[in-house]
Design a protein around this nucleic acid. Sequence first.
DNA 1: TCAATGTGCCGAAATTTATTTTCTTCATCG
DNA 2: CGATGAAGAAAATAAATTTCGGCACATTGA
Lengths: 304, 304
Amino acid sequence: MGEDAAKDGNAAAGMAAPDLIAALTDESALVSPLERKLAASILADVNFATNASITEIAARAGVSPPTVTRFCRRLGCASFSDFKVQLARSAYVGLRYLRPESVTSTPAEVAEDIVTKAQNALFEMHRGLDLEALSRAAALLAKAQMIYAFGAGGNSSMIVNELQNRLFRLGCRIAASNDHGMNLMLSAAAEPGTVVFGSSFSGRNHELVRCFQLLRERGIKTIALTQSGSPLAEAADVVITVDLPEGQNIFRATSTRYAFLATVDILANLVAYADRSRSTRLLRGIKEQLIKHRDGDDRQLLGD
Amino acid sequence: MGEDAAKDGNAAAGMAAPDLIAALTDESALVSPLERKLAASILADVNFATNASITEIAARAGVSPPTVTRFCRRLGCASFSDFKVQLARSAYVGLRYLRPESVTSTPAEVAEDIVTKAQNALFEMHRGLDLEALSRAAALLAKAQMIYAFGAGGNSSMIVNELQNRLFRLGCRIAASNDHGMNLMLSAAAEPGTVVFGSSFSGRNHELVRCFQLLRERGIKTIALTQSGSPLAEAADVVITVDLPEGQNIFRATSTRYAFLATVDILANLVAYADRSRSTRLLRGIKEQLIKHRDGDDRQLLGD
DNA sequence: TCAATGTGCCGAAATTTATTTTCTTCATCG
DNA sequence: CGATGAAGAAAATAAATTTCGGCACATTGA
């Protein structure tokens, strides 16, 4: 019984605070000055905090142990040790990007750095995900008569190709295009019932914005996968925002791709679930794939 | 002093066991039967273990608390609480794939599922990464007169396009191709000094294997990014293996892409570091990119 | 083959350490 | 001026670790 209670408590706690770092950073939640001091102290050295005892943490922050206990409770944790466990989880992926941009030189460091940043990008994307917008986008795509997916540059090309790759097998009529001139013509000729999906990491691709403006004038629905507040976001009907910390993007622009790719993945899944019969078709496709694979064929021949 | 000691101890412990789950799974490290029992009990319900007290864990495993303490020490942790912290970290990304393949239906669940699996794929890839092979591949690519990157199907196409996208700006002469006929012709015509890179998730793409065999006969160096032990791996000079748990691949083949993408990312970085002057050129390129970006251009126009 | 000895694992109890509760004081705000 | 709530001191409780003794198993020598 005690065991079950503990387990339930943990599960509940896990649900309550999926990201402790965010809670710690959120000033509004911390009313008293000592709690702010405590939060600042913990954030200043999370590594220390994850491993220190309650007395050590209290001493470093200049407060008493009971204050720390109360603080943990207020943050939604069951106890101090629960707090530590959650902090360790959050810090593992959530706080690594605070590391200084070191000049990585050994292969092991390069690998570690890239994997960490990719995981961070996914983590951050998930944290800031607007599910409501994604659901609306999925609904639009599922009902669309025809879908155009516009991207530009290596990264967004990859994204829209991926969307095409994922959606065509769900029974969607979709064409991906990465050519500005073509995009403009397709926009000008698009018929009612068409939905246009556009991807741009920065949201400042002029040509794409122009297409979207034209489409708005023409009453064609548009979905943008981009940064919030960007020109492309302004021009779109539904905006799926992915905002990653600037520092990450400037020095090594690549990790954002993982976030975009996963977002497309989620979107495609939502489209699949939007229509049960389509979803069934998807599953049948996967089965077929399995069978072919067992015959020795490369899975990739099927594109998935 | 106590604080510093604690911090140092933690840092050291963190280095010693970056992945506790692996240590727990590794039977060879666990000599005594009770320790095996304990490890099994912990692995059976990691969630419980991360939150329970030492007595609860001991009770569940049917051992005494001191045994648990000793067990933690043996695994390289400073103490039981250190063990818990590390377990929480590992479990966060490392063990989620043990979850039953649930029928995810709500958008939140879909998003959680996809992000988790992508992170897991990255985690597993990083764990099994053969840095030595990657370094050899990078050295080959850096010195190559010409590089061909062969892929097949949606996923591997993406991978080889990505490689091209990353390497051409490092000053590499590279062409990506996804067409079997073309690949065969290129293989037959390749001159000495050429290096061929091939990607296949399963390693069972017959045409690609045939190309590699032909290339071996002709003395052209080949690099395969694929599953270990596969026909493609057998046919290649340098093999970069990415072996992800079967269960993951079979049901939703997509998460492996994140691992492949990150591997290409790492490889490209290693190529950049292989030659300092090239690396400098890379950095200059990034600067240019930044400047253009500030002018309002989409970063993606530059392909990164 | 059979003791005798050694080695090391394991748990009970004691000790130490850590955490939480209770209670009191103090400050702040209405 | 009383009410409210935050914060710490101290006590109580809970948890973790060390110590120590017993036990099982292996090794050695007769």
